[in-house]
Simulated assay, not measured.
Amino acid sequence: MSTATNRPRIAVTLGDPAGVGPELIAKLLSRPENTAAADIVLISDETELKAAGEDAGVAVAYASDPAAGVPVLHDNSAGRPVEVFTRREPTEAGGRWALDNLRIALGMVKRGEADAILFAPLNKTSLHLAGMTENDELRWFEDVLGVEGFTSELNVLPGLWTARVTSHVSLAEVDAGITHENVVRAGRLLDQVLRESGLQAPRIGVCALNPHAGENGRFGRHELDVIAPAVAGLKGEGIDAKGPFPSDTIFLRARAGEFDGVLTMYHDQGQIAMKLMGFDGGVTIAGGLPVPICTPAHGTAFDVVGKGIAHTGSIQNAFDLAVRIGGRRAATA
């Protein structure tokens, strides 16, 4: 962390070069209040930053000296693929570049040189073309960092968080993942990250898996045999958890302010609701890792690349969250 100012040090990567990530980071860093909020290390090169600024219509200020008061460039020009990046479509070269920059950021985490990571949107097809064998970047982060505990993607809108018991698996595999242990672990993680974000007593609502919460076993016994006992276990640990509630109404209650977080059983159970409520402001955070790793909840948006219309709400919220949680970590380190 930055010991001179006790501000968080944020490692920033520009995501897939074929998408809107570079221009979003350029717009983010063109705002003085953002560069004043943290010590920012840009993992990129001058070629990418110049192109990002041109797309965004702004100049990206950076330096090699931390004392300059602008983001510091960790120059990865040596890692740039020899291929010219094709824009607006998944490519192996773009995936390699994105993974290489993220690997540098994760190395900073291992060495205690970063309090948080912010990365712009990635494209999973590009990542898999580049050799990533895991289903998603979270599992890849686990492997690179050597994390063995429970991790989960959490999705965030202002005033509402969600976590998942299962994530990037087929619906056919969801049933096997709904276990007492997994529900408890996911609930603990949601409570922990909410506390790290600044909430002292998070209120968590837990989704049922089956329609109508199973109708007392008529539509399945997950609620009776697994989820309700897990909720009781969370309560026994001092976590304010309630449920299981039918997933077709729990988000109405959450939107009304009854819950700070909702624990869902599978990916789309929460993601559909969250994206309907705030697509242009949503954030994804990787929970259970040594530091918060934040990114916009939207994708690479190939259809609007270079048009100057990419919305900055999610990247701004992701940056603010990285600063807030990273800052709390820096203050206690």
Rank of each mutant, 00 (worst) to 15 (best):
M1S: 14
T5F: 03
R7H: 08
I10G: 02
I10W: 00
I10Y: 00
T13C: 10
T13H: 07
A18C: 10
A18H: 02
A26E: 00
K27W: 00
L29E: 02
N34H: 11
N34W: 02
V41L: 14
V41P: 03
L42G: 02
D45S: 08
D45R: 02
E46V: 13
T47Q: 12
T47M: 09
E48D: 08
E48C: 09
V58A: 09
V60I: 14
D65L: 08
P66W: 05
V70K: 03
V70M: 07
P71T: 07
N76L: 13
N76F: 11
N76W: 05
S77W: 04
G79E: 07
E83D: 15
V84L: 12
F85N: 08
T86A: 15
T86Q: 15
R88F: 03
R88T: 12
E89C: 13
G95Y: 04
G95N: 08
R96G: 10
A98T: 11
R103F: 02
R103P: 00
A105T: 08
G107S: 08
R111C: 06
G112R: 06
I117S: 01
A120M: 08
L122S: 08
N123C: 13
N123H: 12
T125E: 15
T125F: 02
L127Q: 10
H128T: 10
G131K: 08
L138R: 04
F141Q: 13
E142A: 11
V144Y: 02
F150R: 12
E153Y: 07
L154Q: 09
V156D: 03
T162E: 04
A163H: 01
T166L: 10
V169L: 10
L171T: 06
G177H: 09
T179N: 10
V183E: 06
V184G: 05
L189R: 04
D191Y: 01
Q192G: 08
L194K: 06
E196Y: 01
S197P: 00
I204K: 04
I204P: 02
C207P: 01
L209Y: 05
N210E: 15
P211L: 15
R218V: 14
F219W: 13
R221S: 13
H222Q: 12
H222I: 07
I227N: 03
P229R: 14
A232D: 14
L234T: 12
K235N: 15
E237F: 05
A241Q: 07
G243C: 12
P244C: 15
F245A: 14
L252I: 13
A254R: 04
A254M: 07
A254P: 00
A256L: 09
V262S: 09
M265S: 04
Y266N: 03
H267K: 11
I272Q: 14
I272T: 13
A273N: 09
M274W: 01
L276Q: 13
M277R: 02
G278N: 05
G281Y: 03
G282L: 07
I285S: 02
A286D: 06
L289S: 04
V291I: 13
P292G: 12
C294V: 14
C294N: 10
T300P: 00
A301C: 09
A301P: 00
A301S: 11
F302H: 09
V305N: 04
K307H: 09
K307L: 15
T312H: 01
S314R: 01
Q316G: 06
N317Q: 11
D320G: 03
D320N: 12
A322V: 07
V323M: 10
V323G: 01
V323L: 11
G326N: 12
G327P: 01
R329P: 00
